[in-house]
Simulated assay, not measured.
Amino acid sequence: MKKSNYATLFLAASLMVPMAVQASDHSVEKALILVNSGSLQTQGMAMVLGNAMQDQGTQVDVLLCDEAGDLALQETVSEELKPNDVTPEQLMMKLQQGGASVSVCALYLPNSGNARDALREGVDVAVPPAMAEKMLATDTRVFSF
């Protein structure tokens, strides 16, 4: 092959790469966000990203474990986070309004000393086999904070 043919082939291939990247589908149909951290900034960022995913058409579900389970309690009022002066639980409730399910880990209530009636409206207690099924679903991406 002549040198000019290699150059033409290389140029054609390099022009096709951006088209291939644009044509690939990076969308996620479902996202399961696991939040374990007691850090307000981490909790807040998990909810901010969940809302951003939801705004892009992804079905978002949230599982709160350990200290993050406190977000699910009616009595929890966290500090507002900059720059939008919102709390992680306000961001979580926005997710719920958009159709997200929010659950606490099955171990949270019995180990926190709280009863089910202490949970915010619309928050469930996760059932391990059902949660495992969500985590293993091929159309679900799992994110952990």
Rank of each mutant, 00 (worst) to 15 (best):
C105N: 03
M131Q: 15
S24D: 15
D55T: 06
G57K: 12
L15G: 12
A46I: 00
T8D: 08
S27C: 02
L15I: 07
L71G: 07
R141M: 14
M19D: 01
C105F: 01
G38E: 07
Y108W: 08
N111Q: 11
D66I: 07
S144R: 11
S144Y: 12
F145K: 00
K134A: 10
L109N: 03
A46D: 01
V28F: 06
P88I: 03
R116D: 11
A52K: 09
E80D: 14
A23E: 04
G44R: 01
L81S: 04
G122R: 08
F145R: 03
H26K: 11
D55E: 10
A72E: 04
M93C: 06
L107P: 04
Q56W: 04
A106E: 13
T8V: 15
R120Y: 02
A132R: 10
L73I: 05
V123K: 04
M47D: 04
Q54F: 03
T76R: 14
Q43H: 05
S39H: 09
A20V: 13
S101Y: 00
T58E: 07
K30S: 14
L34A: 10
M16L: 15
A7T: 13
Q96M: 10
L49A: 08
P18R: 01
T140K: 07
P110E: 00
T140Q: 12
S14W: 13
A7W: 14
G44P: 15
Q96T: 13
E89S: 12
G69V: 04
P88N: 08
L40C: 06
S39Y: 03
L63N: 04
A31I: 02
K94L: 07
L9F: 10
N111W: 06
E75R: 10
A130P: 02
N84Y: 10
L81Q: 11
T76E: 11
F10L: 11
M93D: 12
K30I: 01
D70V: 13
L11H: 00
F145Q: 06
G99L: 09
Q41N: 14
D66H: 13
P128L: 04
Q90K: 07
A46L: 02
N114Q: 09
G113N: 01
A115W: 01
P83D: 07
S27V: 01
M16N: 03
L11Y: 01
F10W: 15
A31H: 02
Q90Y: 03
L34Y: 09
D55M: 09
G69C: 08
